[in-house]
Design a protein around this nucleic acid. Structure first.
Lengths: 239, 239
DNA sequence: GGACTAAAGTAGACGACGTCAACATTGCTC
DNA sequence: GAGCAATGTTGACGTCGTCTACTTTAGTCC
């Protein structure tokens, strides 16, 4: 009976959904302060909870950051998917995706940097699973658009074409990723022209891809690394 | 006379060149731990100096990080310049630059992330001067290669062509920057194929640029933002 | 319906960190 | 050779991530 359990106590001992509340607070802080260096304790404070409560939901700070990052990937994928809905031609769908992608990064640089900045992906134990699947989903969107003919011709989903599609995706993704980060880091600007820049960079890229899609060297992967490439870093002491 | 000043004391009270020593220690830690989260105190320890000595040479941690980042830019520019020396054709010079650029990032991800990661460029008071000039130098290298005909034709240095060159640089830079970061974040791999990937991505890009160099929208800048674009964020209380 | 248990939250401690202020030592200048 | 500015040291403060031990609550089983 340390605190009165009077009828209208607004704060019960148990929060109810602290996991979601903490992630939400992190997203808030991220977009308010635009800095990736916030403290776990502040998130707890915002959620109206003791500084140690989050540890019941996240193993450590990195774990929390991974959850936030995963939400970021989902958000971005949704924005890209939504953007394509308004268009029919594959070319325009891809362009809309590009705009949405770059815009997503520019609108919330801190979140984008968290997603791609590599607090995660530290070589000790690769990118957390929750994040990997979110990133995979995003990649699937691109595959669709390119296969449907964004490059001026259909690319049926055969084994041979897989390499072509991967080549195109690599170019597209790295181009947009690079543009986004240059904008975010203010090495290119101004960011009000984000859409124009996306469009002209995309145009230059498509001109190249329409002529020849470079075939990637064998053994290359795009997206989160395949599981077998991490065998040596996995915990082997389960035997 | 707190400590004996005996003849062969290996550590004099004054270090001699602590500034350089600290930056050097930071570069060491960065490439050893591959984490951008090292402590000022550890650098001091490595330099064999009290935890507060660095403050006589750097205003704060951010200031130190900026110095390290500037060295990173200089290093990268040197590697790019060296790489071009072995080649005559503009196309090959640009390709060598691309390889050197991507390789530089992949060989020291933590440093590359520090350079572009945005501890700096926080919107409070833009990127530190020391870094800006280093980044400008790097950009100048690209301008040279592209002007000299890397796209298959000479682009004389006229005012009209400036926009074309900037368009080409934007595409080139964001493409290589994006590829580098995808490799660094292990979203594309394996990194042993860095050179192959650089080459095929470069090829796809040049095919596009050879056909049409997109003209950038007016008012766009590439490289560190022009001084006048930051007027509003500058401290105005000096009046 | 009441005891038991596991989940969820709290309290307090620890060492490390960035930074500040006060002090000590040294090298340079007139 | 005195004085001063530059450089280094010591100790302190508040904050952080994380650990351990304790308390409160919700659900389950007889």
């Amino acid at each position: 009976m340390t605190k009165a359990t009077t009828s209208a106590d607004p704060r019960p001992y148990h929060h109810g959904d602290l996991h979601r509340a903490i992630v939400g607070a992190a997203l808030d802080v991220l977009s308010e302060s635009q800095s990736t260096e916030f403290s776990l304790r502040e998130l707890a404070r915002r959620a109206g909870v003791s500084h140690n409560a989050p540890y019941k939901h996240f193993a450590d700070k990195r774990d929390l950051l991974a959850a936030v990052s995963a939400v970021g990937f989902e958000l971005l994928a949704r924005q890209m998917a939504d953007a394509t809905k308004e268009h029919d031609s594959p070319r325009e769908r891809l362009a809309a995706m590009a705009r949405a992608y770059v815009r997503g990064g520019v609108n919330n640089p801190a979140l984008y940097r968290l997603m791609f900045g590599g607090y995660l992906s530290g070589q000790d134990n690769g990118r957390p699973t929750i994040e990997r699947t979110a990133a995979e989903n995003m990649k699937a969107l691109l595959v669709g658009a390119i296969r449907d003919g964004a490059l001026g011709r259909l690319i049926p989903n055969s084994a041979a074409n897989t390499h072509q599609i991967d080549g195109a995706i690599l170019i597209f993704w790295s181009q947009m990723h690079g543009l986004t980060l240059l904008l975010v880091d203010r090495l290119v600007g101004p960011s009000e022209k984000t859409d124009d820049l996306s469009e002209s960079v995309l145009q230059g890229m498509l001109d190249g891809l329409a002529n020849s899609i470079p075939s990637l060297p064998p053994g290359v992967w795009i997206g989160p690394p395949p599981a077998d490439s991490m065998v040596e870093t996995v915990n082997l002491r389960t035997s």
